[in-house]
Amino acid sequence: MRRLLDARTGGLLALALIIALLPLILPNKFYYDVAIKTALNALVCVGLNLLIGYAGQISLGHAGFFALGGYASAVLTARYQWNGFAAMAVGMAGVGLLAFIVARPILRLRGHYLAMATLGLGIIIAIVLNREIPITGGPDGMTVPALRLGEWRLIGTTTWYWISGGVLLIAVWLALNLIDSGVGRALRALHGSEVAAETVGIDTTRYKVLIFVISAVFASLAGSLFAHAERFITPTEAGFMRSIEFVTMVVLGGMASTYGAVVGAAILTVLPQLLTKLHDYEHLAFGAVLILVMIFMPKGLVPTLQNRLRHLVGGQPR
């Protein structure tokens, strides 16, 4: 019973409950669609949060990994008639390998140099996807076949709601376990001070590379699922603005908070749908929201609210 009440299990349970009950109030397919996008964005953010929140490294190129996963699924199933799950696995392995190869040289860099390197990587991926028209369909994108499980074609928004919700739940569980493991402790040390961590014998680069690869694989998986759920993919998915979106979701929700990443993803997926009614003022409003949240809640929504809540019940703020 005590275990049920600790933040981790309790949080997982709450998330599962929300996913299970949400369909009761979703009025139509459009809302399911937004919910699917929320879950898949959250999947990327849970991985990215490990990198940004725990390893203290920034990536402005994760959309590149997301799109690579999506295109691996799209191209292999559409052009080479692969099984969707095999394509997805190959995408994840390929992206993981790419991340591993570039990780060492990239993660030697710090702060803004790291931002530039990941940004550059993402943009190069986007440019390649745009230019290799015979393979990727170019800027107009390509249609993606349905994912098949035996004879069962996985189509329809309700099916994909349960798939993406389930995968998100597993991902959150994995991330939480990782954070509580030895790797997680090493990471937290790393976030404090890299040099200090190194002097006490932590191989910082190894952990950074590991987390970079894990977060890239999460993104790749989300990209594959996205491609099959939407049945369409374009190079915009790899774009700079998309990478920014992911980072913003993590930071807005709260760095070093897995649930924060989920909340951030939910807000920034739903918010543009609300703002679109403002027509021309949409971008203006979106920019203003980003600035204001960062000024007034620099730790992000979830940690800030958690702290306030603790204050209210009289506990010690962390």
Partner: peptide, 30 residues
Amino acid sequence: ARQAVTFARRLIEEDKVDIIVGGSTTGETM
């Protein structure tokens, strides 16, 4: 194109429009 798909679903499911006239670019349309 991604946003176009979202909005097309929204037009159909939420706004319950009777017809769609739009899609400025080929990518969105397809």
